[in-house]
Design a protein around this nucleic acid. Structure first.
Lengths: 226, 226
DNA sequence: CTTTTTGCACTGACCAGTCAGTTCAAAAAC
DNA sequence: GTTTTTGAACTGACTGGTCAGTGCAAAAAG
């Protein structure tokens, strides 16, 4: 296991295949496609069963490759998982940032930015429900190998929300008594749980519908008559 | 790894108070006490590592009993887990219901009831953080043996929140345009994620502090100056 | 153009270790 | 005397990871 006699081992450039095939420059070829298939297989299986209950054999089978191929492309089962995690949250973070920035560019308020981010979150969960499940299931675990990866990656996403809240407080749009960190976590939780519930128990509803419900809650338009 | 000499077994960070409230009914005796120890051991281990990654040997060791005792008291590993689940959510549901009813008894509004339930949720998570972790990690999984148990038990808890929202709508206190089911899920998510974040990343803060932050969000006192 | 070589990507049988669950005689606890 | 616990041995299935070998497309040699 440790210190095997591995020769030169032409440095594999840890490329993370994008969840959607970007295929910008023709660099990838077969390898990239294989990685992609493995990500997709792993994400659904782990979302369904959890990391430990998912076997490498299953992942390989679902991806339509041999088991050895998994280990040709990834150092271990947990490395595969960590790269999956990093990539997925990277997409989410970028999406949230875009939403906030575009709102600012269009002259919207901070509440508008928050609302746009809620929508961006919903769009993400709508597109990658399995990834979201898997992420939530692992986030608050302790004593796990990828704990640090998870923390870093969580902070990236939450920081975007915190940033908008902080700007809002500084600009006087939000009360300066709000607790930025906790409020950000609560907002993330609101979207996360509502969306997972949507996907799990009312999948027929439209994104706009769900967004409208959360918007109302976000903007405190719950009390009082409609 | 197995049966290592286990040094001091020092301070377990996440303490689970006895989930069996008090020994009111005298039916238990020794057996009940053993079961209790097994619950407590299982809940922390599974919260940390997940169900599949936790071995029966570990649970027995942590509980300080022999492996045979586990199988004398529970038919299987998953039966132990299911009973744990049912018991824990039973406590939460009772607690939420109490909060709502007491608010009503004292003549509070529905928002007050919601607020009381937020607090009850926080108190629960504060007392049983490991159980909460474990529950969240399993809730949205699919294809698992205890899936149906989980659904039933989830519905019990969420229904209490939905009930208060519905009463609020009927009584004109809440807008009749709110989506009861989604809003309930969002509220639960808000408390859940904020609390887990609190326990994981800001454990030094007080419950009142966290409650105040969530109250503000719940009552839409975010926008506008302090 | 044809033949040979190269080396990347992939294969799948295999191994050493692990784990849920069983068994049971004997000891404790009640 | 009965109920509960112990503790260690055992089984049989499963799993992460390994490795010698295959296939093939493009480069190099002829």
């Amino acid at each position: 296991m440790t210190s095997s006699s591995v020769p030169a081992e032409a440095a594999v450039p840890v490329r993370i295949g994008s969840m959607e095939s970007s295929s910008t420059t023709g660099g990838s070829t077969r390898r990239e496609a294989t990685r992609q298939k493995l990500y997709e297989a792993a994400v659904t299986l782990i979302a369904e069963q959890g990391f430990s209950a998912t076997t490498v054999d299953e992942i390989a089978e679902r991806a339509g490759v041999a088991k050895g191929t998994v280990y040709y492309n990834f150092a271990s089962k947990s490395v595969l998982f960590e790269e999956l995690l990093r990539h997925g949250v990277g997409l989410l973070t970028a999406s949230l940032r875009d939403a906030a920035e575009q709102t600012a560019r269009e002259g919207g308020s901070r509440v508008d930015a928050l609302d746009a981010m809620v929508r961006a979150g919903l769009v993400f969960i709508d597109r990658y429900p399995a990834f979201t499940q898997l992420y939530v299931a692992e986030l608050w675990r302790t004593n796990r190998a990828w704990q640090s990866t998870l923390m870093v990656v969580r902070q990236q996403a939450v920081a975007v929300v915190e940033g908008v809240l902080r700007e809002g407080v500084e600009g006087g749009e939000f009360s300066d008594e709000i607790d930025v960190q906790l409020t950000a976590a609560a907002l993330v939780g609101m979207v996360l749980v509502a969306a997972l519930d949507w996907k799990s128990f009312q999948p027929e509803r439209s994104l706009d519908d769900v967004h409208a419900a959360l918007s109302r809650l976000l903007q405190g338009r719950v009390s009082g008559k409609g």
